[in-house]
């Protein structure tokens, strides 16, 4: 149970964003979903989040600078990507959870739960 935890979802595919939002909201989380790197940076700077789910490849670039920004702000995050073999992902973000698409909702939720509990 997420009890109002604020979750940032960065996902350019509306259907997937919709689905991720729904499963999180079903668990009591509050979702802000954005579709681009640009929007993500903007919202991350102006809002406080408890955790984030990041797609890697976005229409306007990769999500890595968003991840850097979140890391600096102490916001835990995980990657949810179909590009799980991206070498940069593997080498530059050790220890960060990577969920591979097509994803299992339960794994998304449990990983998210883990992020929230570790950081509280």
């Amino acid at each position: 149970m997420m009890n109002g935890a604020r979750i940032l979802v960065v996902e350019d595919e509306p259907l997937i964003a919709m689905e991720l939002s729904q499963i999180i909201e079903d668990q009591g989380g509050v979702v802000a979903a954005v579709r681009s790197r640009h929007e993500a940076l903007e919202i991350a700077m102006t809002n406080v989040f408890d955790a984030a789910i990041l797609d890697v490849r976005l229409p306007d670039g990769t999500v890595f600078d968003v991840a850097t920004h979140l890391q600096a702000g102490g916001v835990p995050f995980m990657f949810c990507t179909a590009d799980s073999e991206n070498p940069q992902l593997v080498s530059a973000w050790p220890g960060v959870t990577v969920v591979s698409k097509p994803h299992n909702s339960n794994i998304i939720l449990s990983s998210l739960q883990k992020l929230l509990t570790t950081h509280t």
């Binding site: 259907l15 997937i16 919709m18 729904q22 490849r57 179909a82 590009d83 097509p102």
Partner: peptide, 24 residues
């Protein structure tokens, strides 16, 4: 190849979402 793999997997994820949404 990675791109192709990415797209295929992405499409599957989309279908997955469509499935779940439709089921809802």
């Amino acid at each position: 190849l990675r791109e192709l793999s990415h797209r295929v997997k992405n499409s599957m994820a989309v279908i997955q979402s469509v499935t779940r949404q439709t089921l809802r």
